[in-house]
Design a protein around this nucleic acid. Structure first.
Lengths: 209, 209, 209, 209
DNA sequence: CATGAATGAGGATTCATTCAT
DNA sequence: TATGAATGAATCCTCATTCAT
């Protein structure tokens, strides 16, 4: 039923990003999005199933591009460490370039509606896979610690970038997100690397009362 | 106006955790929470300003306890690495103990309503400070890398645990969150440690077309 | 059931006048009145059937006093014109003395709830009767125009004083209501008097198109 | 935002008059008005800001018409006395024609909500001005007593008509309001006229105890 | 007599979605 | 295709009243 292409399709998605960033998810009425996109309210329903579909499509559209951009960025990259560096750099670059989008991705779309989460999970998983691929590649190449569970390592890498990005979006001070690239790289690279040494997980010492 | 103590106050908060975990924040009608708590709808408004206040109070109440528990756990801990280990362990233990609470903290409270975020920020900052304190202590003791920005390191530690916890809550498979403790410790410890070595952030090589 | 006497009974009525004058009828919650009266919410229900009963009792209490005061004032008055003069004077004096009460009587109690109107009608009728009595007395004495319907004349006298009082209460400028006494007397006295002459009601002249 | 014209706008206002007259303002639920108007509940909010706005608009709409009708009626009227006569006649005619409207104007709109009063004051003032204009005209022409304060005279004229109308609306007996026209004219005309004589306001005689 | 914590019915308003044009 | 007026379900909160103490 819903026509998922065309000029207006994209206009509606872009309008949704702006309106959600400006008003927050719960004040982003369909009517506002329609007005911003320059179409009638009803027109949105020619291109999308419903409001939720707009959100999921928005995420697919923007996050898909995001993943693709990062993937290309990593294409001609040599070492795993360089890949990690480029990953972080690309991640932050993309967010910094479009603060509205960053706000929507980092804050507004963290909604709890299970159906939205599900619609989103597929596309975010591709990004996860990309990160996990870097990890596995690093382990294969002998650069990253082979004892690591790649999926866990991915969560650490993504969780770290995500937390840094979220703090940046929420911050009132307008600092430069890209400045975080090297510092975060330094910590994560060390964490993932073969060579580092740290004390093993300490056995819990039973408390003596 | 709102009486913020008493048996019913706690009953309402506990009921809210259950109802929000089951239905999501936006499907958690006040009437449902009241019923679960065994009180009348209006009674909620004797103890809370409004629905939002229930959410914020819930967070304050539970997260405050959370922070306090972790703080105590770290009290008689020797080395920074042991503190890190205990921090992760305590963090995951608390979430694992109460899956409803975990769901609410990890998912439902990531609401975009600015007023909720603001009400929450104070109390989450205390937890942040606790983590940051561990980092600074580690740097002082010569265990952690003094080149790190403690605040950034905190974001990495928190972001990593948070991502792992969120994945766990969202996962349909019922795996044991505590099993992640040692693996995540191993990566983070290495990342924070003095001793690790990893290639420096690679200069970007201009692409030759 | 309801005990209609005692110190607290009066305290509640006086508190109601103050609270209603301050907040308007619809923001005059029972709890506020109770607090102002220095009693518990529930205590009000020992003295009054319900909130409506408080209002009706308030009106009975205050308006009864009002009527009684005016009646006494007219007791030793000689001529009908003097009675009219004293009536207006007493009416305005009473309102001017207690602005809260004036506000409640002129504005807040003009509620539309039929049951309140009914509860009030009995007591207001006594005041009406008093005015009507003055009119009839004036006609009997040959001072007032015998062609007048006394009931209609009463409506004119009361309606005029009432409108003047209402405007005074609603006015932001704090002028003196008693200053209106003589001017309004002059018009009403002439209107009621035997001697006045004015053109008869003009026949409607059919419009010629 | 609210579209203040159209067929449905008028239908809602007319429905509001009927429902408010039947149930009183505070029992006139929006849902009832919508049903009577044959529209959906939400439709009301396309034409009015909120329920209060319905009331105020109703008053503006009906009272505006009222004033306009009376103004036209007075247009080709000769003497001040004839104007007074026509004023009273038009006033009562309009109310008698539409008893629901009369009930709403005389009873239900005497609400105490300050915001409603304010919304109404502008339009009632126009009617006041019209009456005052008649008074001033009569004084200029030498027909009315020049010693009168025109504003006070207006209050007496309006207050008298208003009281008579209110009693008529509240009365259970279905008498004819227009029958009051000539009697009230006779009293008011005499009261306003140049020629009448009445004893001056009596000096207060100090009571001898 | 007095208290005040608890009750729960009741209603204005929003906004995603539809459908006649 | 596109419109936008109309729909109506869904819910938070208030506050008069009760009753166990």
């Amino acid at each position: 039923m819903a026509k998922r292409t065309g000029e207006k399709y994209q206009a509606i998605i872009d309008a949704a990003v702006i309106i959600i960033a400006e008003n927050g998810y719960h004040n982003a009425q369909v009517a506002k999005i329609a007005k911003e996109a320059g179409v009638a309210d009803g027109t949105i329903y020619l291109y999308f199933e419903n409001k939720e579909d707009v959100l999921i499509s928005l995420f697919r559209n923007k996050m898909g591009l995001f993943t693709e951009t990062v993937r290309k960025e990593l294409k001609n990259t040599g070492s795993p460490f360089e890949m990690l560096a480029r990953l972080i750099q690309a991640h932050f670059t993309r967010l910094q370039q479009d603060r509205s989008l960053a706000s929507v991705l980092q804050i507004e779309l963290r909604q709890s509606e299970p159906s939205i989460r599900q619609g989103i999970s597929q596309i975010i998983r591709e990004y996860y896979n990309l990160i996990e691929h870097v990890i596995r590649f690093g382990i294969e190449k002998g650069s990253f610690n082979p004892d690591m569970n790649p999926r866990l390592a991915r969560k650490i890498v993504f969780g770290s970038m995500d937390e840094v990005a979220t703090c940046w979006v929420l911050s009132t001070r307008q600092y430069n997100l890209l400045d975080m690239t090297i510092p975060i790289y330094n910590i994560l690279a060390r964490g993932l690397s073969m060579t580092g040494i740290a004390p093993p997980f300490p056995r819990e010492i039973p408390k003596t009362h």
